[in-house]
Simulated scan of single mutants.
Amino acid sequence: MSAVYCVKEIYIYPIKSLAGISLNRAKAEEMGFENDRRWMLIDVDNVHVTQREYPIMSQFYPEISNGKITISFENDKHEFSIDEHLNVSIESAVWEDKSEVFEVNQNTSKWFSDKLGFECKLVKINKIGARKHESSKTKETYNVSFADAYPYLLIGTESLDFLNEKLEEKITIKRFRPNIVVSTKSAHEEDDFKSFKIGEVQFENIKPCGRCIMVNNDPQKGIIKKEPLKTLSKYRNVNNSVLFGTNIVSLNSGIISVGDEVVF
């Protein structure tokens, strides 16, 4: 008999706001899973670019193999090495957090610019500490990659099931871009998880995650709809923030796998 609380799905999102990759196992690191949101697109003002402004970004699909990342968009593909980057640093930011980044290469930036229809660069975060985020909840500072605020997002299965009971058009967990999906007993109980272990890794819950318009982007079509934010706001609005899933950090590095038990 399998444990009630166990890992059902694992995801990484190598390039911020592009589609994710489903994994059977992943290496947890301080900044998030290995290769999770270590890259992002920035515009001519060095401001990060996301699905909030460009829903079509959900239609870019990454794959990782043999030290390379391949991006598929429509009928075209582009490839670059995980390790490559130019040597000139760029000062960018994710929201209020300043970040030192490096352009991957000019050819990759041109490919994305052509596909998206505006000038942009693909940049990489190159070291731990290149971006720091101060938590409004704990007042502590965390080393993060290009996630909006925290290295990991965890969601319980019952939270999605409870939401889908209220929606006419059912959605998948991909709308919420989790890193870890765990089986649960009741909706949103993950909000109250404190410290817990999965596989080799000890995690700590920081706070429930406030959601934005991006969850209304249908990842299969790249089209913004009214749901699920409209329905969620009716029963998950806390202090003008619509909550779904919870932000967590890892206290050590290690491997977690689908099927691992969540140990409290």
Rank of each mutant, 00 (worst) to 15 (best):
S2D: 14
A3L: 15
Y5K: 02
K8T: 13
E9H: 13
Y11K: 07
Y13F: 14
P14I: 09
I15C: 04
S17T: 00
L18A: 08
L18D: 05
A19Y: 10
G20R: 07
S22A: 14
N24Y: 11
A26N: 13
K27F: 14
K27T: 15
A28N: 04
E29F: 10
E29C: 03
E30W: 06
G32F: 01
G32Y: 05
N35C: 01
N35T: 03
N35L: 15
D36T: 07
D43P: 10
V44R: 13
D45A: 14
N46G: 09
V47P: 00
H48L: 14
V49C: 04
Q51W: 05
Y54L: 12
Y61G: 12
Y61N: 15
I64N: 09
I64C: 09
K68D: 08
K68Y: 11
S72G: 12
E74C: 02
D76C: 00
K77R: 08
K77Y: 06
S81E: 12
I82G: 04
I82N: 00
S89H: 13
E91S: 15
E91D: 15
W95Y: 08
N107Q: 13
S113F: 06
S113A: 08
S113C: 03
S113V: 08
K115P: 07
G117S: 01
G117E: 08
K121S: 12
I128D: 01
G129F: 09
S136Q: 14
K137C: 01
K139N: 15
K139R: 15
N143Y: 00
V144Q: 12
V144M: 02
S145V: 10
S145L: 05
S145A: 14
S145Y: 11
F146Y: 02
F146V: 03
D148R: 07
P151S: 10
L153F: 13
L153E: 04
L154R: 10
L154Y: 03
E158H: 10
S159Y: 13
S159M: 06
D161W: 06
D161A: 14
F162P: 00
F162W: 10
N164I: 04
L167C: 06
K170V: 00
I171E: 04
K174Q: 14
K174F: 11
F176T: 00
R177F: 07
R177D: 05
P178A: 03
P178C: 04
I180P: 07
V181R: 06
V181N: 01
V181A: 07
E189H: 01
D192M: 05
D192C: 05
S195V: 15
G199M: 05
Q202K: 10
E204C: 08
I206N: 08
C212Y: 02
N216G: 02
N217L: 12
D218F: 12
Q220L: 13
K221Q: 12
G222Y: 08
E227K: 09
S233Y: 03
Y235N: 08
V238K: 14
N239R: 08
V242N: 03
G245C: 02
N247Y: 10
N247K: 04
G254S: 11
G254A: 02
D260K: 09
